[in-house]
Design a protein around this nucleic acid. Structure first.
Lengths: 113, 113
DNA sequence: TGCCATACCTCGATTCTCGATGCATCGATT
DNA sequence: AATCGATGCATCGAGAATCGAGGTATGGCA
C-alpha cells in the first residue's frame, strides 16, 4: 500500500507529465494512472478533481468543455499551459533532486533486513 | 522551493535510511539532511519531532536517552528496529516504483518549455 | 425499462501541519 | 559572572488539507 504522502507528492508531477503528452480529462487520467502503475496507484475522483481545480486556479493547466467523439457525452478536457510547462520542469528537478539523495544513500548503504 | 508534499513524502524514507546507517538524534538528523540536500531541504524541529514520535509509536524506531560524549548534555538517540528495517524496504520499493513511472514518462516525453 | 459505465462535481468531519513558543544546558565572549 | 548563540528537547493549536460519501446526468445495451 502506497503512503498517502507519496501519492500526494506524485500527483502533481504525474498529472502535469500526462497532460504535457497531450490533453486529457479526469476520468481518463484516473484510468491511465491505474494502468501505468499496474494498479498500485488508485486515485479516486475525490482525490483527482480537487487537484485539477487547484492546478487550473494556478493557471498551470486550462480546460475546455467538449463532446466526446462518437458519443455526445460532455467532457472537460484539460491542457497544460506555458506556465504549466515550466512548473513541470521545476517539479521534475525537485523530484529528481530528492530521488538523487535517496538513491545515493541507498547505494552507499543498501537497506536490508 | 520544494513542495510541502515532496518534503512530507521523503521524510519517512530519509529518516529511516539515515537511522539504518547508525543511530542518531533529532538535531543531528536536521543537520545531516540539510547537508545532504545542499540546503534544499530545511526541516524545522516542528516538522521532525512529530515524525520521530509517530515512527516510535509505530515501533519502527526506538529511543534511549543518553549524555553526549564530551559534554553532559542529554540527547535522545533513535535506532531503527527490525520492524523498521522491513518498513524501510517497503518505503524504498514504493518510492522506486513511483520514480520508475515518472522516469519512464519523462524518458518517453521529456518535459520542455 | 432498468442498469452499468462513464463523467462531472461538492461537502465536511477528520486529520495533519508547522511556526511559534517554551525550557534547559554548554561554551565562548565580554 | 552575566550574556549570548548554538545545541537539544518538546508541545500547542489555528489554519489547511484530505478523500469517502453522496449528488447529478448521459449513453449504450439487453
Amino acid at each position: 500500500m502506497l503512503s498517502k504522502d507519496l501519492v500526494a507528492a506524485s500527483s502533481r508531477p504525474l498529472v502535469l507529465t500526462l497532460l504535457a503528452a497531450g490533453e486529457s480529462y479526469g476520468y481518463e487520467l484516473i484510468r491511465k494512472v491505474r494502468e501505468l502503475s499496474g494498479g498500485r496507484l488508485e486515485w479516486t475522483e475525490g482525490t483527482l478533481y480537487p487537484v485539477l481545480h487547484r492546478l487550473e486556479a494556478e493557471k498551470i493547466i486550462a480546460s475546455r468543455w467538449d463532446a466526446a467523439a462518437g458519443t455526445g457525452r460532455k467532457r472537460k478536457y484539460y491542457q497544460i499551459t506555458a506556465t504549466g510547462r515550466s512548473a513541470l520542469l521545476e517539479e521534475q528537478k525537485n523530484w529528481q533532486s530528492i530521488n538523487q539523495i535517496l538513491e545515493n544513500l541507498w547505494t552507499q548503504n543498501p537497506p536490508s533486513i
